[in-house]
Write a protein that binds this DNA or RNA. Structure first.
Length: 887
RNA sequence: GGAACAUUAGCUCAGUUGGUUUAGAGCAUUACUUUGACAGAGUAGGGGUCACUGGUUCGAGUCCAGUAUGUUCCA
């Protein structure tokens, strides 16, 4: 068969993916094999594939394909997340472009647009995963708002509410004034902002509460948000602060609105920050809220939900908060309250979704009391029931779980699971499965006939549905105890980003124990964050994220998979550069050329070559490669078990490039224009197949293509070929590995000597060896001669004059050339080596002459040092002889 | 402000319970060789006081303390 000059990935990718699908290789149903289950971290339904997905899904595919080839019933479940905030933002944006305001639409009309959008763009990302080669069971594709899934989410809400784990409460939350929604703490991004610190002077009040003139002193506070003074409920000072101690118990006057507020003492106030006096605004600051509760202060909510000033602010009503800030500063200046304004850099919370400044705000929200369900989830990870890779995330997890806070699960959005609570006109409410259920329960609870109820407008946090993912994709809630969930759950490995360890991983663990009574997965592999060469996180805003599909079209999916994985040490962030794709491409090119070579031999192969035709006299190279292959495969298996995928790939890379291509194929290569022995060829093809098999999970397309080109008729496709477990169960033959190491070092040393002495490749040399043990050279002397172009190999006991002398494996080699030798380079080499060993010897002897070392160190360590000393002395002796021999 | 993790060649990283030849790999770079599988390959070389300062020890990249820098998380 004619083999193209290079691998044509475009046609191969298309052809093989379709072939795998046609043969249903990725489909899984329960059987008597051991399952290997992975659920995809569901990407946003309207998302597109980026480098993070590429890394994450390549890793999952490697694990799944490998499991499939190792006899497991591999099941990788695809799906998407409705991503309420992100998707709703996109739909709102799309509507705005069409000139439609969300506020002008009814909930039903909006959701119609949203579903239309989802049908149009949803699942593009799943198509893109196919381009990457992902072996997902497409029949099992799930969506967090599928009817069954939706109902399960509602059921879980009802259940947790029934258990008393969900409550409704007015709490300080992060408010996004643009999206008009509450945000969880995790959705707030703190950024350093250059702002201003305003020092404002408040008038003090006399005993009757009348303002004293500012000239009498007043009290100075510092704030970065002057507009919030309208919500002030107190001024706090540290009770130990001599400057203010006497004022505790008196009152001050809020400027402009002349509200009388108490001056209170609280340890929370830092004496060395600002002016030492702190204004307390309970409605608009987390800490102030705490102090307010502690001291029973009034609450003035001065902001509307869109970030404009409210009626309670008294001034600037309806004006945006930032505009109000400008105006109030002017007003305060005119009234003489501004003492000074400092430049000030501080951390400000921004909404992850809309990037506007977040306002801490009091709001009535739904909450989950996390302490009720977190205990088994903490134990599972602490006690190794669930293993994190790398393990360092265990600490982080513990820290978070031990200090877990209640989870605000309501979002002021329409796209999502609508909160199943129904209210009557008086604000009484009931939690139920649906409206009918609600009416019944409401009647039963409040004794009202045929109540008029209205469902809560808000929907649930996206994570409140995705925490059910590992079992609800198998309908663990909607169809409890079905045979899929019984077979596939708990899943094996979760591959995800450390950023969502709390959002998602921890909550899945909690939900798993709460609803399935067991862990959701055995292992969690945390990938790094993909960054660019400057170390910046890849993001759309920065425009530093490469177009993945373009890259796949350009260089091939296998090269991209190789590129991202080779750059990806376990648990560390990876600085990704396009150059690593090229390393992948070069590697593919290298294997492809090995295939071409084997193909060439195939055309020239014959059975039962005559002794004359036969270049290779023994099976030694095959025996060695067999041993080497088993050694490396064992190593790779161990690395894979430790989730060191990148190292496993590197190990295979070296095996292919160095051991297979540079050594093995060269050793069995027939002489120029000589025929290839069929038996030898078949051995080589057999090894080649095993290499392809081991590489397949990493680079599925090129390996499948080559596997079929290697033999005219393959009994199976590589995708489902089963790895031979007994192959690596046989231990590698160490004797032959040692011989090979000796052969390699001899070849390298002699080639090096030839170059140094400027002996042309085509000029044959003669080798004379002073061997301590002749037997070690016998099996390899033929190959040695072939690889270094030596015409003879002879043992000797005498010095051979006019030669280059080398020391290989403790034996002396004399390399004799018919040409005149240029020994100058050789001499320099020997001198350098000599001085190295002399220095080395010195350091060893220093150690050995240290009595404390000899008496304290373990015997074997001392013995080792003695051996080093002896070896070094030996080496020095030979080097000196070599120099003498050079004349 | 608190916490976790990190800091080893130009870059990305290994380095197992302190001792296996005065620190290893890949990529990049340089020189030479070769062009009969190889948009290349082969061989060799350069490049590191293992962030810094102390300490423990016969012995520290490895353990301890502190400092600096960075990343992330939490206030």
């Amino acid at each position: 068969m004619e083999i193209s000059k290079t691998f044509d990935f475009t046609s191969a990718e298309q052809k093989w993916y379709q072939h795998w699908l046609d043969n249903k290789y990725f489909e899984s149903t329960p059987d008597d094999r051991e399952p290997y289950t992975v659920v995809i971290p569901p990407p946003n339904v309207t998302g597109i594939l980026h480098m993070g997905h590429c890394l994450n899904n390549t890793i999952q595919d490697i694990l799944v394909r490998r499991a499939r080839m190792m006899g497991k019933n591999a099941c990788w479940v695809p799906g998407t997340d409705h991503a309420s905030i992100a998707t709703e933002a996109k739909v709102v944006h799309m509507l705005r472009e069409r000139g439609i305001q969300k506020s002008s639409l009814s909930r039903e009309a909006f959701l119609e647009y949203a579903w239309e959008w989802k049908e149009k763009y949803g699942g593009i990302i799943l198509q893109q995963l196919k381009k990457l080669g992902c072996s997902l069971d497409w029949n099992r594709t799930s969506f967090t708002m599928d009817p069954d899934y939706y109902r399960s989410v509602i059921q879980v809400f009802n259940d947790l509410y029934g258990k008393g784990y969900i409550y409704r409460g007015k709490r300080m939350i992060n408010w996004d004034p643009r999206a008009k929604t509450a945000l969880s703490d995790e959705e707030v991004i703190f950024k350093e902002v250059q702002g201003k610190l305003y020092f404002l002077q408040y008038q003090l009040a006399d005993k009757e509460g009348n303002p004293l003139p500012l000239e009498n002193g007043g009290i100075i506070i510092a704030t970065v948000r002057p507009e919030t003074i309208l919500g002030d409920a107190a001024i706090a000072v540290n009770p130990s602060d001599e400057r203010f101690k006497h004022l505790i118990g008196t009152e001050a006057i809020v400027p402009l609105i002349n509200r009388r507020i108490p001056i209170i003492g609280d340890d929370y106030v830092a004496t060395d920050f600002g002016s030492g006096a702190l204004k307390i605004t309970p409605a608009h600051d987390m800490n102030d809220n705490q102090i307010g509760i502690k001291h029973g202060l009034a609450v003035y909510d001065i902001l509307n939900e869109d970030g404009t000033m409210s009626v309670d602010a008294q001034l600037y009503i309806g004006l945006d908060r930032f505009e109000a800030r400008k105006q109030i500063v002017e007003a305060l200046k005119s009234a003489g309250h501004v003492v000074k304004i400092d430049e000030y850099t501080h951390q400000v919370g921004f909404s992850e979704r809309t990037d506007v400044v977040v306002e801490p705000r009091l709001s009535l929200q739904w909450w989950v009391d996390m302490k009720k369900i977190s205990a088994p989830a903490l134990n599972a990870v602490q006690e190794g029931e669930i293993n994190f890779h790398p393990a360092k995330f265990k600490n982080l997890y513990r820290h978070w779980m031990e200090n877990i806070k209640d989870w605000c699960i309501s979002r002021q959005l329409w796209w999502g699971h609508q909160i199943p609570a129904w209210y009557d006109a008086e604000g009484r409410f009931i939690v139920a499965m649906d409206e009918e259920d609600a009416k019944q329960k409401f009647s039963a609870t409040y004794g009202v006939e045929n109540p008029q109820l209205k469902q809560d407008e808000d929907c649930l946090d996206t994570w409140f549905s995705s925490w059910l993912w590992p079992f609800e994709v198998f309908k663990g809630i909607s169809n409890p105890g079905n045979k899929d969930v019984a077979y596939y759950y708990p899943t094996n490995t979760l591959v995800t980003a450390p950023e969502i360890i709390f959002f998602w991983v921890a909550r899945m663990v909690m939900a798993g124990y709460e609803y399935m009574g067991q862990k959701p997965f055995k292992d969690v592999y945390f990938t790094g964050i993909v960054r660019d060469l400057q170390g910046r996180k890849m993001s759309k805003q920065l425009g530093n994220s490469p177009d993945l599909l373009e890259m796949i079209d350009d260089i091939g999916a296998d090269a991209v998979r190789f590129g991202i994985l080779i750059a990806s040490p376990a648990g560390n962030d990876l600085l990704w550069d396009k150059a690593s794709n090229e390393q992948g491409r070069n590697f593919i090119n290298k294997i492809w050329n090995a295939l071409k070579l084997v193909q060439l031999w195939k055309e020239r192969s014959k059975p039962n070559l005559t002794a004359e035709e036969m270049t290779l006299g023994s099976d030694w190279p095959h025996e060695w490669f067999d041993a080497r292959l088993r050694e490396v495969c064992t190593e790779v298996d161990q690395l894979m078990e430790q989730f060191k995928l990148s190292e496993a790939l590197k190990t295979l890379y070296t095996l292919v490039w160095d051991d297979f291509c540079s050594w093995y194929l060269e050793w069995i290569k027939p002489g120029f224009e000589k025929p290839m022995d069929e038996a030898h060829l078949n051995k080589a093809i057999g090894f080649f197949e095993i290499l392809l098999e081991r590489l397949h999970p990493f680079m599925p397309f090129v390996t499948e293509e080559m596997f079929h080109l290697l033999r005219d008729e393959q009994p199976v496709d590589l995708c489902v070929r089963q790895m031979d477990a007994s192959f690596i169960a046989r231990p590698a033959d160490h004797a032959i590995l040692t011989e090979a190491a000796l052969l390699k070092s001899a070849i390298t040393a002699i080639r090096d000597a030839r170059v140094k002495a400027q002996i042309k490749n085509k000029d044959a040399v003669s080798l004379y060896v002073v061997a301590k043990e002749k037997a070690v050279w016998l099996p390899i002397q033929e190959l040695l001669c072939k690889q270094v172009n030596a015409k003879s190999f002879a043992f000797t006991d005498d010095v051979v004059a006019e030669t280059i002398q080398l020391v290989i494996g403790g034996d002396k080699f004399y390399v004799k050339s018919d040409q005149a030798l240029d020994t100058s380079i050789q001499r320099k080499e020997l001198e350098a080596e000599l001085s190295y060993f002399q220095g080395f010897l010195e350091s060893v002897e220093k150690k050995l002459s240290n009595e404390k070392f000899v008496s304290n160190a373990k015997q074997e360590v001392v013995d080792m040092e003695r051996k080093k000393q002896a070896d070094a002395l030996d080496k020095i002796k030979m080097l000196k002889e070599g120099l003498a021999n050079l004349g």
